[in-house]
Simulated scan of single mutants.
Amino acid sequence: MMNLKKCALHTAVAMACGLGAQLANAGATINFGEDKYIGLGFGFISSYNSKEDAVNQGSDRSNDFALDSARIYISGSFNKYIKGMLNTEKSGGGSAGSNVEVIDANVQFQLTPEVAIWAGRFLSPSDRANMAGPYYSMGGGYWANIASRYGWNGGVIGRDDGVAMVTSFLEDHLNVSFGAFEGNQIFRFSGVGAQSQSSTHKDNLMYAGRVQYDFWDAEPGYYGTGNYFGAKDILAIGVAGRYKKDGVVSPTNVVGDYKAYSVDFLLEKKDVGPGTFSAEAAYYYYGTDGVFKGEQGHAYSAGLGYLFQEQVGWGKFMPIIRYQKFNADGVTSYNSTTTAFTNTTGGGASKRFEVGTNYVIAPYNATLTATYGKEDTATASNKDFVRVALQMQF
């Protein structure tokens, strides 16, 4: 879709899962002529996690090392009009028994400089957190599956099979995307026992769209980022939505419509004192027609960061703070062994607060993150946690 020879910004698109507007050098490119190339790269996130009362029947603190993510990136270009990508990820919700699966496999037809068609498996238009992904978020690592729920729970690590029109206008200040997708894994890791469509249910498509406007510097590209580490001045607002009729099917064959929309905000200003200040916020609504009350409700997230320009050792320090909350309409639980399904009203709030710092060695490609926080969910009532994550891309 994009010409890598124009700028290193576009190199990040092809090499790092097509993750849009980044100043990164992730991967190596083998050229075969004008607008003909193959790009290769890989990335991983490894972490240490310690949680209060998480083992020994809730009486002892856990201490765990985990491989949160492992990705291989392959991109290619036939000419300036036809490009594609093939990317893999360690799946399974971070569990020890996870496998490797394809998360991106698509072709991009650049019809005009402003209009492209994406087809295959890729990120459907959605909120900034999902479009940025774990490697391009301000705090590093994976979401806690609290506010931006589709990014972790929906599809294949936020991806879906379908087709979308991706457009940009006003010198990349206005970006509009809209598409139709399969949408049959919306609640993949939720544990609510959601059923995909079968011969007894209608096979409707899921429609998704996003509109974003940048008031200051422009953000070219479809996939996005949550932070520019002082490379740009950003003031952006995005609105996204998705809908699938009969897209919610419970284990007891109760059917409802799936709908979700969000509004997100990002501000980043360089040269604020001795560094760069950033602020992000988002609001979400999820609807299931009451079929899964634990996946239905309003969510909020907000974060602040400050990147000091002075280098200390190998990198620069970036203190961060983040808050997420999901006010679910109830609690939904499903036991796959006994097939017991419950759906109750009330008591479904989840929240997570964390504070810490990034140590940015190379933006997007080498970052060490350490945070301390508190979380209050159905499985962890106001428990503290410590997380140290190493993120690298090559």
Results as ranks from 00 to 15, higher is better:
38 I>Y: 07
32 F>K: 06
59 S>R: 10
228 Y>R: 06
331 V>R: 11
298 H>I: 13
7 C>D: 14
213 Y>G: 07
112 T>S: 15
366 A>L: 07
217 D>L: 02
138 M>P: 02
309 Q>E: 09
72 I>T: 12
185 Q>R: 15
329 D>I: 08
32 F>Y: 15
319 P>L: 02
276 T>H: 11
369 T>P: 01
277 F>I: 05
239 V>T: 10
329 D>R: 11
10 H>Q: 06
259 K>D: 05
134 P>T: 05
83 K>G: 15
45 I>S: 02
299 A>G: 14
336 S>P: 14
260 A>V: 07
212 Q>F: 11
321 I>V: 07
289 D>C: 14
84 G>K: 13
280 E>A: 14
348 G>W: 01
321 I>E: 06
81 Y>W: 15
156 V>H: 09
99 N>V: 09
98 S>Y: 12
242 R>S: 10
94 G>S: 09
212 Q>E: 12
358 N>P: 00
193 G>S: 06
90 K>R: 04
126 S>K: 03
205 L>Q: 15
52 E>W: 00
101 E>D: 10
313 G>V: 04
216 W>K: 08
77 S>V: 05
265 F>D: 01
272 V>W: 11
52 E>M: 03
8 A>L: 04
74 I>P: 09
106 N>A: 02
210 R>L: 01
331 V>Y: 11
170 L>S: 05
309 Q>D: 11
309 Q>P: 06
7 C>F: 08
270 K>G: 06
285 Y>M: 15
360 V>S: 14
32 F>M: 05
387 R>K: 11
369 T>A: 13
340 A>V: 10
160 D>C: 02
275 G>E: 09
110 Q>N: 14
378 A>S: 13
280 E>P: 09
386 V>Q: 05
32 F>T: 04
376 D>P: 08
18 G>M: 02
72 I>N: 10
54 A>K: 08
327 N>T: 03
279 A>R: 03
125 P>K: 00
331 V>I: 12
115 V>I: 09
352 R>H: 15
12 A>G: 10
38 I>F: 10
145 N>T: 01
55 V>I: 15
184 N>T: 08
240 A>I: 00
91 S>A: 05
99 N>E: 15
199 S>D: 10
103 I>C: 02
316 K>Y: 03
316 K>I: 04
271 D>T: 11
214 D>C: 03
346 G>L: 04
343 N>Y: 03
273 G>K: 09
256 G>Q: 02
364 Y>P: 00
178 F>A: 14
394 F>R: 11
11 T>H: 06
316 K>L: 07
286 Y>G: 04
88 T>G: 04
267 L>S: 10
13 V>K: 08
256 G>D: 12
280 E>V: 12
68 D>K: 03
13 V>H: 09
10 H>T: 03
234 I>N: 05
192 V>P: 01
235 L>G: 15
171 E>M: 07
247 G>K: 00
127 D>S: 01
384 D>Y: 13
269 K>I: 01
356 G>E: 02
329 D>N: 12
107 V>I: 14
372 Y>V: 15
175 N>P: 02
360 V>E: 02
144 A>N: 09
39 G>F: 03
158 G>Y: 00
153 N>A: 12
283 Y>H: 04
76 G>T: 04
96 A>W: 08
375 E>L: 14
112 T>D: 06
362 A>Q: 14
31 N>T: 14
84 G>N: 09
